[in-house]
Amino acid sequence: MIISTTPLLDIKGLNAGYGGVRVLHDVSLSVGQGEFVTVIGANTAGKSTLLRTISGLVEAQGSIRFDGQELVGRPSHLVPALGIAHVPEGRHVFPEMTVEENVMLGAYAVRSASDLATRRDRILTMFPRLRERLHQAAGTLSGGEQQMVAIGRALMLEPKLLLLDEPSHGLAPKIVDELHETFLAVSRTGTAILLIEQNTTLALSVASRGYVLEAGRIVLSGTSAELTGNDAVRSAYLGL
Protein backbone atom coordinates (compact mmCIF):
# COMPACT_ATOMS: atom_id res chain seq x y z
CA MET A 1 0.00 0.00 0.00
CA ILE A 2 1.33 3.40 -0.90
CA ILE A 3 0.74 6.09 1.67
CA SER A 4 0.70 9.42 -0.10
CA THR A 5 -0.17 11.69 2.83
CA THR A 6 1.65 11.86 6.15
CA PRO A 7 0.94 8.83 8.31
CA LEU A 8 -1.65 9.05 11.10
CA LEU A 9 0.88 7.80 13.63
CA ASP A 10 4.53 8.52 13.02
CA ILE A 11 7.07 7.36 15.59
CA LYS A 12 10.68 8.39 15.15
CA GLY A 13 13.73 7.55 17.28
CA LEU A 14 11.67 6.53 20.27
CA ASN A 15 13.40 5.52 23.49
CA ALA A 16 11.30 4.52 26.46
CA GLY A 17 11.44 2.59 29.69
CA TYR A 18 10.66 2.35 33.35
CA GLY A 19 12.87 4.25 35.79
CA GLY A 20 16.44 3.66 34.69
CA VAL A 21 15.65 0.57 32.63
CA ARG A 22 15.30 1.30 28.96
CA VAL A 23 12.95 -1.03 27.12
CA LEU A 24 12.57 0.55 23.69
CA HIS A 25 15.62 1.58 21.68
CA ASP A 26 15.40 3.97 18.76
CA VAL A 27 12.06 2.66 17.54
CA SER A 28 10.62 4.12 14.35
CA LEU A 29 7.25 3.01 13.08
CA SER A 30 4.26 4.40 11.27
CA VAL A 31 0.58 3.66 10.83
CA GLY A 32 -1.28 5.25 7.94
CA GLN A 33 -4.86 6.53 7.99
CA GLY A 34 -7.11 3.48 8.31
CA GLU A 35 -4.20 1.09 8.08
CA PHE A 36 -4.07 -2.24 9.95
CA VAL A 37 -0.55 -2.76 11.31
CA THR A 38 0.81 -5.39 13.65
CA VAL A 39 3.90 -5.58 15.82
CA ILE A 40 5.16 -9.07 16.45
CA GLY A 41 7.92 -10.28 18.71
CA ALA A 42 8.77 -12.41 21.70
CA ASN A 43 7.24 -11.97 25.13
CA THR A 44 9.75 -9.50 26.53
CA ALA A 45 10.48 -7.63 23.32
CA GLY A 46 8.73 -4.50 24.57
CA LYS A 47 5.52 -4.70 22.55
CA SER A 48 3.23 -3.70 25.42
CA THR A 49 5.64 -0.95 26.40
CA LEU A 50 5.36 0.42 22.87
CA LEU A 51 1.58 0.73 23.14
CA ARG A 52 1.81 2.07 26.69
CA THR A 53 4.28 4.68 25.50
CA ILE A 54 1.94 5.83 22.75
CA SER A 55 -0.79 6.19 25.42
CA GLY A 56 1.50 8.26 27.61
CA LEU A 57 1.76 5.66 30.37
CA VAL A 58 5.52 5.27 29.98
CA GLU A 59 8.13 8.01 29.95
CA ALA A 60 9.74 8.48 26.57
CA GLN A 61 12.22 10.46 24.52
CA GLY A 62 11.97 10.87 20.79
CA SER A 63 8.95 11.73 18.73
CA ILE A 64 5.45 10.31 18.44
CA ARG A 65 3.43 12.39 15.99
CA PHE A 66 -0.26 11.61 15.89
CA ASP A 67 -2.57 13.46 13.55
CA GLY A 68 -0.30 16.50 13.61
CA GLN A 69 0.22 16.51 17.39
CA GLU A 70 3.23 15.50 19.44
CA LEU A 71 2.39 12.83 22.02
CA VAL A 72 5.70 12.60 23.87
CA GLY A 73 5.35 14.52 27.12
CA ARG A 74 1.55 14.55 26.97
CA PRO A 75 -0.17 13.22 30.11
CA SER A 76 -1.92 9.93 29.46
CA HIS A 77 -5.39 11.16 30.38
CA LEU A 78 -5.28 13.69 27.53
CA VAL A 79 -4.49 11.07 24.88
CA PRO A 80 -7.96 9.50 24.40
CA ALA A 81 -9.53 12.83 23.45
CA LEU A 82 -7.15 12.99 20.46
CA GLY A 83 -8.72 9.80 19.11
CA ILE A 84 -6.53 7.02 20.46
CA ALA A 85 -8.28 4.15 22.20
CA HIS A 86 -6.20 1.60 24.04
CA VAL A 87 -7.32 -1.91 24.93
CA PRO A 88 -4.76 -2.85 27.56
CA GLU A 89 -3.34 -6.30 27.99
CA GLY A 90 -5.26 -8.62 30.28
CA ARG A 91 -8.90 -7.60 29.80
CA HIS A 92 -8.99 -4.50 31.91
CA VAL A 93 -12.68 -4.03 32.64
CA PHE A 94 -14.23 -2.35 35.67
CA PRO A 95 -15.34 -5.60 37.33
CA GLU A 96 -18.07 -4.30 39.63
CA MET A 97 -19.64 -1.97 37.10
CA THR A 98 -22.24 -3.26 34.67
CA VAL A 99 -21.42 -4.00 31.07
CA GLU A 100 -23.34 -0.88 30.09
CA GLU A 101 -21.43 1.34 32.51
CA ASN A 102 -18.16 -0.08 31.24
CA VAL A 103 -19.05 0.57 27.64
CA MET A 104 -20.39 4.07 28.30
CA LEU A 105 -17.26 5.01 30.25
CA GLY A 106 -15.35 4.51 27.01
CA ALA A 107 -16.75 7.87 25.93
CA TYR A 108 -15.44 9.52 29.09
CA ALA A 109 -13.00 11.68 27.14
CA VAL A 110 -15.66 12.82 24.67
CA ARG A 111 -18.64 12.88 27.01
CA SER A 112 -20.11 15.92 25.34
CA ALA A 113 -20.66 13.95 22.12
CA SER A 114 -24.32 14.05 21.19
CA ASP A 115 -24.50 10.61 19.58
CA LEU A 116 -23.51 8.46 22.55
CA ALA A 117 -26.66 6.34 22.28
CA THR A 118 -25.98 5.66 18.61
CA ARG A 119 -22.41 4.70 19.37
CA ARG A 120 -23.57 2.38 22.12
CA ASP A 121 -26.10 0.69 19.85
CA ARG A 122 -23.51 0.19 17.14
CA ILE A 123 -21.23 -1.55 19.62
CA LEU A 124 -24.02 -3.73 20.97
CA THR A 125 -24.88 -4.73 17.41
CA MET A 126 -21.25 -5.67 16.90
CA PHE A 127 -21.24 -7.71 20.13
CA PRO A 128 -24.79 -9.05 20.56
CA ARG A 129 -23.66 -11.04 23.59
CA LEU A 130 -23.00 -7.80 25.44
CA ARG A 131 -26.55 -6.67 24.80
CA GLU A 132 -27.81 -9.80 26.57
CA ARG A 133 -25.59 -9.06 29.57
CA LEU A 134 -26.00 -5.30 29.65
CA HIS A 135 -26.86 -5.04 33.34
CA GLN A 136 -24.56 -7.76 34.57
CA ALA A 137 -21.36 -6.88 36.47
CA ALA A 138 -18.52 -7.06 33.96
CA GLY A 139 -16.39 -9.09 36.36
CA THR A 140 -18.86 -11.98 36.18
CA LEU A 141 -18.50 -12.44 32.41
CA SER A 142 -16.32 -15.01 30.69
CA GLY A 143 -12.84 -14.04 29.52
CA GLY A 144 -13.96 -13.60 25.92
CA GLU A 145 -16.93 -11.49 26.91
CA GLN A 146 -14.76 -9.30 29.12
CA GLN A 147 -12.47 -8.74 26.18
CA MET A 148 -15.53 -7.72 24.14
CA VAL A 149 -16.40 -5.24 26.89
CA ALA A 150 -12.88 -3.79 26.82
CA ILE A 151 -12.97 -3.51 23.02
CA GLY A 152 -16.50 -2.11 23.02
CA ARG A 153 -15.43 0.47 25.57
CA ALA A 154 -12.51 1.48 23.36
CA LEU A 155 -14.77 1.78 20.32
CA MET A 156 -17.12 4.14 22.16
CA LEU A 157 -14.47 6.75 21.54
CA GLU A 158 -14.83 6.22 17.76
CA PRO A 159 -11.05 6.37 17.68
CA LYS A 160 -8.90 7.22 14.71
CA LEU A 161 -6.42 4.71 16.05
CA LEU A 162 -7.18 1.57 18.04
CA LEU A 163 -4.35 0.06 20.09
CA LEU A 164 -4.90 -3.63 20.80
CA ASP A 165 -2.60 -5.33 23.30
CA GLU A 166 -2.73 -9.14 23.07
CA PRO A 167 -6.51 -9.24 22.64
CA SER A 168 -6.62 -13.02 22.11
CA HIS A 169 -4.39 -13.94 25.01
CA GLY A 170 -5.87 -16.82 26.98
CA LEU A 171 -9.09 -17.02 24.96
CA ALA A 172 -10.69 -20.01 23.26
CA PRO A 173 -9.82 -20.32 19.53
CA LYS A 174 -13.43 -19.81 18.48
CA ILE A 175 -13.63 -16.51 20.38
CA VAL A 176 -10.26 -15.47 18.98
CA ASP A 177 -11.51 -15.97 15.43
CA GLU A 178 -14.64 -13.95 16.20
CA LEU A 179 -12.60 -11.12 17.68
CA HIS A 180 -10.36 -10.93 14.65
CA GLU A 181 -13.38 -10.85 12.36
CA THR A 182 -14.52 -7.89 14.44
CA PHE A 183 -11.13 -6.18 14.07
CA LEU A 184 -11.33 -6.57 10.30
CA ALA A 185 -14.82 -5.09 10.36
CA VAL A 186 -13.62 -2.15 12.46
CA SER A 187 -10.70 -1.70 10.11
CA ARG A 188 -13.04 -1.54 7.12
CA THR A 189 -14.84 1.41 8.71
CA GLY A 190 -11.63 3.40 8.36
CA THR A 191 -10.24 3.05 11.87
CA ALA A 192 -6.50 2.50 11.95
CA ILE A 193 -5.39 -0.41 14.14
CA LEU A 194 -2.09 -1.19 15.78
CA LEU A 195 -2.27 -4.80 16.94
CA ILE A 196 0.09 -6.64 19.21
CA GLU A 197 -0.33 -10.35 19.19
CA GLN A 198 1.50 -13.41 20.43
CA ASN A 199 -0.17 -15.43 17.75
CA THR A 200 1.97 -14.29 14.83
CA THR A 201 0.15 -16.35 12.20
CA LEU A 202 -3.12 -14.76 13.16
CA ALA A 203 -1.68 -11.27 13.39
CA LEU A 204 -0.14 -11.45 9.93
CA SER A 205 -3.36 -12.86 8.50
CA VAL A 206 -5.40 -9.81 9.51
CA ALA A 207 -2.89 -6.95 9.33
CA SER A 208 -1.67 -5.55 6.07
CA ARG A 209 1.77 -4.62 7.34
CA GLY A 210 3.96 -5.60 10.25
CA TYR A 211 7.03 -4.85 12.29
CA VAL A 212 9.23 -7.31 14.16
CA LEU A 213 10.36 -6.09 17.57
CA GLU A 214 13.31 -7.83 19.19
CA ALA A 215 14.76 -6.77 22.55
CA GLY A 216 13.25 -3.31 22.15
CA ARG A 217 14.45 -2.69 18.59
CA ILE A 218 12.64 -2.91 15.27
CA VAL A 219 14.63 -5.51 13.36
CA LEU A 220 12.39 -6.06 10.38
CA SER A 221 9.34 -4.61 8.71
CA GLY A 222 7.28 -5.25 5.64
CA THR A 223 3.92 -6.24 4.30
CA SER A 224 2.31 -9.21 5.95
CA ALA A 225 3.02 -11.29 2.88
CA GLU A 226 6.71 -10.36 2.95
CA LEU A 227 7.00 -11.17 6.65
CA THR A 228 5.15 -14.45 6.27
CA GLY A 229 7.61 -15.36 3.51
CA ASN A 230 10.68 -14.25 5.48
CA ASP A 231 12.81 -17.19 6.63
CA ALA A 232 13.83 -15.59 9.93
CA VAL A 233 10.21 -14.78 10.81
CA ARG A 234 9.09 -18.23 9.71
CA SER A 235 11.54 -19.99 11.98
CA ALA A 236 11.40 -17.65 14.96
CA TYR A 237 7.71 -16.77 15.16
CA LEU A 238 5.72 -18.99 12.87
CA GLY A 239 7.37 -22.25 13.93
CA LEU A 240 7.82 -23.36 10.31
Binding site: S55, S76, P80, P88, H92, F94, E96, M97, L105, L157
Partner: peptide, 18 residues
Protein backbone atom coordinates in the same frame (compact mmCIF):
# COMPACT_ATOMS: atom_id res chain seq x y z
CA UNK B 1 -12.84 7.26 42.06
CA UNK B 2 -14.80 4.09 41.52
CA UNK B 3 -13.19 3.56 38.13
CA UNK B 4 -9.77 4.04 39.73
CA UNK B 5 -10.60 1.64 42.53
CA UNK B 6 -11.81 -1.07 40.19
CA UNK B 7 -9.06 -0.79 37.63
CA UNK B 8 -6.62 2.06 37.62
CA UNK B 9 -5.02 1.17 34.29
CA UNK B 10 -8.36 1.03 32.56
CA UNK B 11 -9.36 4.34 34.16
CA UNK B 12 -6.19 5.92 32.84
CA UNK B 13 -6.61 4.72 29.25
CA UNK B 14 -10.19 5.98 29.01
CA UNK B 15 -8.96 9.43 29.94
CA UNK B 16 -9.47 9.77 33.69
CA UNK B 17 -6.83 11.99 35.26
CA UNK B 18 -6.18 9.43 37.99
Amino acid sequence: LRAIKENEDAAEVIGVDT
